[in-house]
Nucleic acid binder design. Structure first.
Length: 697
RNA sequence: CGCGGGGUGGAGCAGUCUGGUAGCUCGCGAGGCUCAUAACCUCGAGGUCGCAGGUUCAAAUCCUGUCCCCGCCA
């Protein structure tokens, strides 16, 4: 029976790049989707960028551009990373889409109609300088319990106490460094306690959640009355304005899960599908539509297992069939760390290593549990090399050349039951995939690979090759071997789609369905063998770690968003740009391209910035061009930029400007900035994604 | 007693539900092969299954207690 399955992976936040930790989830989900499709089921794999919230707003300000420009760039970067890792979404949307706005409105009015929305005053710290209320993580101060300094607004990592930001002593805004004041504002809340009985049942019935998760919810949330959920934020906020509450916006976590639906809506539109056939609404919703499967990390459990089902229930939409929750990634047994270089971006990884390695490694470690997944770097290399190269690909490598001239035997030969045995194991492997026990699936597949290698060794085709009268036998043996290889390629296709493609090309018979592993090929041509996978070079792994370490800004950098409060951070898009600026500094004479090319401009990171007491105008900057390349540069921006606000940010450096002796030392380049001077100086910054050392063209 | 996960040869794990004296992969040692990306095959060394009790003809597996490790704005 063909199932109709709707799958989502959590929406990556548009404030950061995809890293190896994210990829645990996207690879896990992609494997599952590819598996279901290979089994012949209809499956829509949906995702989107999560684009709203204070963090995006502040970052856009910092970079001096609109939120729309920021999220558009980040979406491109995310999609590029996913594509490189063969994570194949059927649709990749954005929470900042018209579809999402419309769906938010629909669900909101349902909540209103059901009487679930209430209004309450909330007192929060307000940053007067930045003009915004401060979320807990944007406030630091002294813990009211134990007196530890430099703690975040919601809890103390020294003594473990939790409190509200207004209890914090000596609070400081991490946005502007100013002292925030208490202000109160009206917020809108969803009264999910009304749905407590429903949530008890839905979470505890053993159908929708892993047992550990159900148990956790029961112990932590469901035993007490559920607290109202604050779903609004006062302006300024980057998000959707709430239609019936002027000046308020939906909190990012309200519109994010609705983004799943919005992405589905986009997909339906493009493919002529009916939204209602996939995610129905109404009294009979549970009996119609697709199976809905969400894949998420354990950090966002309660949004997806309490608030989200509650919202769906209240609005009458079909509920998820299952929420699959996975653990985090650790590297060499520890949390990913920027200073240790184990916080590896997807884009850094692909510079050094084949994405297929990571897909296989994750698959070999993943289970349906919430355990963290450890990526031991030595194990990673050993496992990939011995399993994928030594066992699987090696089968093709050691047999294809013998039969390339003749093709496979016309009739599949006697093989001692090997093919039939492996075909019979298909269902066990399929079941492991279906239950997210990928490690079991990989173990079974490698067992088959072992048997196949043993077979070749016993049959010793290289000996038969020397005796022309044994040509038929030689061909038979290779026919068996290549068919066993092809079976493995089918079973591994969800994990290694490219290997499946290559196997299809080699044997002139594309792999399209799980059942392709049930029938051997015979009498078909064999292509020229080409290497399908390189081995993992441990040196490359180390380079990747090294590069990741370099990407991280100095550890001592305070957790601040640099540049805020500096001049030139207006966020409203320019509408009426006057002619004055151009008139003040007329264009220079035309230069040739060669002239332009002489100027070598590079992306650089400010690693240190120092006020020179004796100078009225200069700051001393230490810039990194990546690696060990450091430049000492004097910039005439004193009094315009706070030194501390510059540390960590990227600038553009004219890197081949002749060094110049100045009173305070030698300046080895020039930081590019716009503006007439005085207080009007605006440092140029690259869009997110650029890394130190890159040339500006 | 906050919750959850886990302790099996050097490493990573299976086996625990449905008791019958331990298995896989990697690594290590020896040998073989030479088709293959120093890949493959065979053999071997290495574990009293965290510890202590209990049930049983029989326990890694069931029961009780205990120690340790990991994660938890899950």
């Amino acid at each position: 029976m063909t199932r109709k399955i709707l799958v989502t992976a959590a929406l990556p936040y548009a404030n950061g790049h995809i890293h190896l930790g994210h990829l645990v989830e996207y690879i896990q989900t992609d494997i599952w989707v590819r598996f279901q499709k290979l089994r012949g089921h209809r499956c829509a794999f949906l995702c989107a960028d999560d684009t709203h919230g204070t963090a995006i707003m502040m970052r856009a300000r910092q970079e001096g551009r609109s939120e729309d420009a920021l999220i558009a760039d980040m979406r491109d970067a995310h999609l590029h990373d996913f594509t490189r890792f063969d994570v194949a979404f059927d649709n990749y949307g954005s929470t900042n889409s018209p579809e999402n706005l419309a769906l938010c409105g629909e669900i909101w009015s349902s909540l209103r109609q059901a009487g679930l929305v209430v209004e309450e005053d909330v007192t929060q710290l307000f940053d007067v300088e930045a003009g915004t209320f401060l979320a807990d993580r944007f406030v630091k101060g002294t813990c009211p319990k134990c007196g530890s300094a430099d703690q975040y607004g919601d809890n103390c990592d020294k003594c473990g106490a939790t409190y509200s930001p207004s209890d914090l002593k000596n609070p400081v805004s991490t946005l502007s460094g100013s002292i925030p004041e208490l202000r109160s504002a009206k917020h809108l809340f969803v009264r999910i306690e009304t749905l407590h009985d429903f949530l008890n049942e839905w979470t505890q019935d053993g159908e929708h959640l892993q047992p550990e998760v159900a148990n956790y919810l029961k112990g932590h949330f469901l035993q007490d009355p559920l607290r109202d959920w604050d779903v609004s934020r006062p302006a300024p906020y980057f998000g959707f304005p709430i239609p019936d509450s002027p000046g308020n916006y939906w909190y990012v976590w309200f519109d994010a899960p609705i983004g799943y639906m919005a992405s589905l809506a986009e997909w339906c539109k493009r493919h002529g599908e009916s939204f209602d056939d996939w995610w129905p609404r109404g009294a009979d919703a549970e009996t119609r539509g697709a199976e809905i499967h969400h894949f998420i990390g354990k950090d966002i459990t309660y949004f997806h297992t309490l608030f989200w089902p509650a919202m769906l229930k209240a609005a009458g939409f079909k509920l998820p069939r299952q929420v699959h929750i996975h653990g985090f990634l650790t590297v060499d047994g520890e949390k990913m760390s920027k200073s240790k270089g184990t916080f590896v971006r997807a884009s850094t990884y692909v510079k050094h290593l084949d994405p297929a390695f990571l897909r296989y490694f994750y698959a070999s470690k993943l289970s349906a549990k919430l355990d963290d997944l450890d990526m031991n770097l030595d194990e990673f290399a050993d496992k990939v090399n011995s399993d994928l190269v030594g066992k699987v690909v090696n089968l093709a490598s050691r047999s294809a050349r013998f039969v390339q001239p003749t093709g496979l035997s016309p009739v599949y030969p006697e093989d001692g039951g090997l093919f039939a045995q492996a075909a019979a194991e298909g269902e066990a492997i399929a079941s492991a995939y279906d239950h997210l026990d990928y490690n079991t699936a990989m173990r079974l597949v490698m067992g088959l690979a072992d048997r196949a290698n043993k077979y070749i060794d016993e049959q010793a085709p290289w000996t038969l090759k020397k005796d022309p009268s044994q040509a038929g036998r030689l061909r038979d043996i290779c026919t068996v071997t290549l068919n066993l290889f092809r079976q493995l390629a089918v079973y591994l296709a969800p994990v290694l789609p490219r290997l499946a493609e290559q196997a299809g090309e080699l044997l002139h018979s594309p792999i399209r369905h799980w059942s392709d592993a049930q029938t051997p090929l015979a009498g078909t041509p064999v292509g020229e063998f080409q290497h399908m996978l390189k081995r993992v070079d441990k040196a490359q792994v180390l380079k990747m770690i090294e590069e990741s370490r370099e990407e991280a800004p100095g550890q001592a950098t305070p957790a601040s968003v640099p540049g805020v409060g500096a001049p030139g951070t207006a966020t409203s898009p320019p509408t009426t740009d006057g002619p004055e600026a151009l008139a003040a500094e007329p264009l220079s004479a035309t230069c040739t391209f060669d002239d332009f090319a002489k100027v070598d401009m590079r992306v650089a990171r400010v690693v240190a910035a120092e006020d020179l007491a004796e100078s009225n105008k200069l700051l001393r900057l230490t810039l990194s061009l990546g690696g060990d390349d450091r430049r000492n540069v004097f910039a005439g921006i004193k009094g315009v930029y706070e030194p501390a606000s510059l540390v960590g940010r990227l600038v553009i450096l004219c890197a081949n400007l002749a060094p110049r002796k100045m009173k305070f030392g030698v300046s080895e380049g020039m930081v590019l900035a716009a503006g007439p001077g005085g207080k009007d100086i605006f440092i140029l910054a690259p869009d997110s994604g650029a890394v130190p050392g890159q040339r500006v063209h």
